[in-house]
């Protein structure tokens, strides 16, 4: 305690938890890696290039925007990395690289920055990018690649759109057609459980979605396991619905949010012309978040 040293004077608390935005974002990216690697393994090198392009374009878009606007460079927080990676994993393995780049730029600029950047966007940026691409290039967005030997047995569609039954083991491992990052249930579960154990994501959103899908499947008389493992449900439930910025902050709100997504997913899958509805369900519930937050405010202690 040398008196010559200046003391810091500050408002309490004087200690802080070691978590940071960067740590959380990089953990999410790490948790996504197994599923991305399986995608590359199943679909080949082009899938890797798609992922790298979408990540690179997302980061570049973020840097350029922040430079042009004269803002503090925040790209190191890792949120652009996660958005780019998620978007890439939501693209079909045959996606042309320019499309991946375009989707990423759209996701970062229109999905996030125009609202004021990190923390201010109402919709999940990666999903905004994906839906933009689906609406603009429907043919390219549904051009699937097929793991070896798949076509002969099951035809040229994803399991949800197919009329032939696909064995559960293939759904688990990921040797099915689909988006790069959504095919391997086992890899997604590993990443998702890692985030749950680290408490980086909330079990009530994941539980709400998966629980509702199971219950509704049973009611509708379809195979619940098939619905859990197919389409982008696991990717969406663990990695996109749980996005902090675009999900409710109250404990009850998170359950409602999760259950709402599960409900919409099953309604779209069973009653609409689209085979797959995870993206739209999450985006629709994103729009309801301010309302949910307001309606589920916790009761204050002593009131």
């Amino acid at each position: 305690m040398a008196t010559s040293e200046l003391l810091t004077v500050a408002s309490s608390p004087h200690i802080r938890d070691k978590t940071s935005v960067e740590k959380i974002m990089f953990s999410v990216a790490l948790a996504l890696t197994p599923a991305a690697l399986v995608g590359v393994y199943v679909f080949g090198w082009h899938a890797l290039w798609v992922l790298l392009t979408s990540i690179g374009a997302a980061i570049a878009a973020e840097v350029i925007w922040q430079k042009l606007r004269g803002q503090r460079l925040r790209v190191y927080d890792g949120s652009a990395l996660v958005t780019g990676l998620l978007l890439g994993m939501n693209l079909p393995p045959t996606a042309p690289l320019w499309m991946a780049a375009l989707g990423s730029v759209f996701a970062i600029i229109i999905g996030k920055q125009v609202y004021g950047g990190l923390g201010a966007n109402p919709f999940n940026p990666a999903l905004v990018g994906r839906v933009f691409l689906t609406a603009s290039f429907p043919a390219l967005m549904t051009k699937w690649a097929f793991p070896a030997g798949y076509v002969d047995a099951f035809g040229q569609a994803t399991p949800l759109a197919s009329s032939v039954e696909v064995p559960m083991s293939k759904l688990f491992l990921g040797t099915i057609p689909g988006c790069i990052g959504e095919v391997s249930a086992i890899a997604l579960l590993i990443g998702g459980l890692y985030l749950l154990i680290k408490r980086y994501i909330d079990y009530s959103i994941v539980g709400g979605i998966l629980g509702t899908v199971v219950v509704l499947s049973l009611i509708m008389g379809v195979d619940p396991l098939f619905h859990l493992l197919s389409g982008g449900l696991l990717l969406g439930a663990f990695f996109m619905a749980t996005d902090y910025v675009t999900s409710p902050v109250t404990p009850r709100g998170r359950w409602i949010f999760g259950i709402g997504i599960g409900l919409l997913v099953m309604l779209i899958r069973q009653f609409s012309s689209m085979p797959e509805g995870v993206s739209f369900s999450i985006l629709l519930m994103n729009a309801a978040v301010p309302l949910i937050n307001r309606a589920t405010r916790p009761r204050i202690y002593g009131r």
Binding site: S20, V21, R74, G119, D202, R254, P298, I300
Partner: peptide
């Protein structure tokens, strides 16, 4: 950094 609505403060607040 900007608030990312992670809800940690809401979950941990002892005055709810």
């Amino acid at each position: 950094d900007p608030c990312i609505s992670c809800a940690r403060c809401v979950d941990h607040c002892p005055a709810y």
